[in-house]
Amino acid sequence: MKSTILAEDKDILVCYKPPGIAVQSARLGEPDMVSELKNYLGGKNPYLGVVHRLDQPVSGNLVFAKTPAAAATLSRQASHETGQESGKKKKPAAFMEKEYCALVFTGDAENLPEPGLSVKLEDYLLRDGRKNTSAVVPSGTKDAKRAELVYEVKEKKEKQALVKIRLLTGRHHQIRVQFAHAGLPLLGDARYGTEKSREYSAGKGITNICLCACRLSFYHPATGRRMDFQTEEIPWIS
């Protein structure tokens, strides 16, 4: 099995997803996390609820539900996330928190924050379902959704920087789009990267998106106990 099981009981299954495998694929015969984990669980079509997703090239921690009741509880936590979306005055009692690590290209950045300084990005994103892309658009654009995240530069080296990201909303390709718009495209991102970032990635031998869901925190759907999972399995950090 390509994934790594981090925790499991009768309600949940937490695992590390390696880069390159889809969470759930509609293509016949293409391997995905759901099929792999159902084979692991055994039995006749065991229940496995998808609570949240990661893009196929992205690695990191995921939680799946093993019962419909657990799926409903965890999905509510995931939809609230940190409870800090626009229009929310109070943080909900239970929420799911997601932190990411990424390598970004700094060659085109005009004002890269100093390490340790927390920076918030706020944009409106519009998804193009036909092209499977999202883009930053002006506020008030029809069907656009507010996107918020907070990041901190951990280390700078040459024309790249290691950043830690905390999502405040969960939008399609949010991290990749917002960082590209801010002049800090992710290394290895062919879709949203610039010509310079793609050239730099190629020169470094980077062929996959340098983005990892390195920390996942949520409340157990049955016990209410806060659970926290951090991974050191970051493919592009030796």
Score class of each variant (00 low, 15 high):
residue 4 T to Y: 00
residue 5 I to A: 06
residue 8 E to W: 02
residue 8 E to K: 04
residue 10 K to C: 10
residue 12 I to Q: 03
residue 13 L to Q: 02
residue 16 Y to R: 13
residue 17 K to F: 02
residue 21 I to W: 05
residue 21 I to L: 13
residue 21 I to T: 13
residue 23 V to I: 14
residue 24 Q to E: 15
residue 25 S to F: 01
residue 26 A to H: 09
residue 32 D to L: 12
residue 35 S to Q: 10
residue 36 E to T: 09
residue 37 L to K: 00
residue 40 Y to R: 06
residue 40 Y to C: 03
residue 44 K to S: 12
residue 46 P to W: 09
residue 47 Y to P: 15
residue 48 L to M: 09
residue 48 L to F: 06
residue 49 G to V: 12
residue 49 G to L: 07
residue 50 V to R: 08
residue 52 H to V: 15
residue 52 H to L: 13
residue 58 V to Y: 08
residue 61 N to F: 04
residue 61 N to M: 12
residue 68 P to M: 07
residue 68 P to A: 08
residue 68 P to Q: 06
residue 70 A to I: 07
residue 72 A to M: 14
residue 72 A to H: 14
residue 74 L to D: 07
residue 75 S to Y: 11
residue 75 S to G: 15
residue 78 A to I: 13
residue 81 E to S: 12
residue 81 E to P: 06
residue 83 G to P: 06
residue 84 Q to P: 00
residue 85 E to D: 14
residue 86 S to C: 10
residue 87 G to N: 11
residue 88 K to V: 13
residue 91 K to N: 08
residue 93 A to Y: 09
residue 94 A to F: 00
residue 95 F to L: 14
residue 97 E to G: 05
residue 97 E to T: 10
residue 98 K to Y: 05
residue 101 C to G: 06
residue 102 A to Q: 01
residue 102 A to W: 01
residue 104 V to S: 04
residue 105 F to L: 15
residue 105 F to Y: 12
residue 107 G to T: 15
residue 109 A to Y: 08
residue 112 L to K: 13
residue 114 E to I: 03
residue 114 E to K: 07
residue 118 S to M: 08
residue 120 K to L: 13
residue 120 K to C: 15
residue 121 L to G: 15
residue 123 D to H: 14
residue 123 D to F: 06
residue 128 D to R: 12
residue 130 R to N: 14
residue 130 R to F: 03
residue 133 T to I: 11
residue 134 S to G: 09
residue 135 A to H: 02
residue 138 P to G: 04
residue 141 T to L: 12
residue 143 D to L: 01
residue 143 D to E: 01
residue 143 D to N: 05
residue 144 A to K: 09
residue 145 K to I: 00
residue 145 K to V: 00
residue 146 R to Q: 14
residue 146 R to K: 14
residue 146 R to A: 09
residue 147 A to R: 09
residue 147 A to H: 11
residue 148 E to R: 15
residue 150 V to R: 05
residue 151 Y to A: 06
residue 151 Y to Q: 10
residue 153 V to R: 02
residue 153 V to A: 01
residue 153 V to I: 04
residue 157 K to V: 13
residue 157 K to E: 11
residue 157 K to L: 12
residue 158 E to F: 05
residue 158 E to L: 10
residue 159 K to D: 08
residue 160 Q to C: 10
residue 160 Q to Y: 03
residue 165 I to M: 14
residue 168 L to T: 15
residue 169 T to A: 11
residue 169 T to N: 11
residue 170 G to Y: 04
residue 171 R to C: 10
residue 173 H to W: 01
residue 174 Q to K: 11
residue 175 I to Q: 03
residue 178 Q to K: 04
residue 179 F to D: 04
residue 179 F to Q: 07
residue 180 A to C: 09
residue 180 A to V: 06
residue 188 G to Q: 10
residue 188 G to Y: 04
residue 192 Y to A: 09
residue 196 K to L: 12
residue 197 S to Q: 05
residue 203 G to H: 00
residue 206 I to P: 13
residue 207 T to N: 14
residue 207 T to V: 15
residue 208 N to R: 15
residue 208 N to E: 15
residue 209 I to F: 05
residue 211 L to F: 13
residue 214 C to N: 07
residue 214 C to V: 10
residue 217 S to N: 12
residue 220 H to C: 02
residue 221 P to F: 02
residue 223 T to W: 01
residue 223 T to H: 02
residue 224 G to C: 02
residue 224 G to L: 02
residue 225 R to A: 06
residue 225 R to W: 01
residue 227 M to C: 02
residue 231 T to N: 04
residue 231 T to P: 09
residue 233 E to F: 01
residue 234 I to H: 13
residue 235 P to I: 02
residue 238 S to C: 14
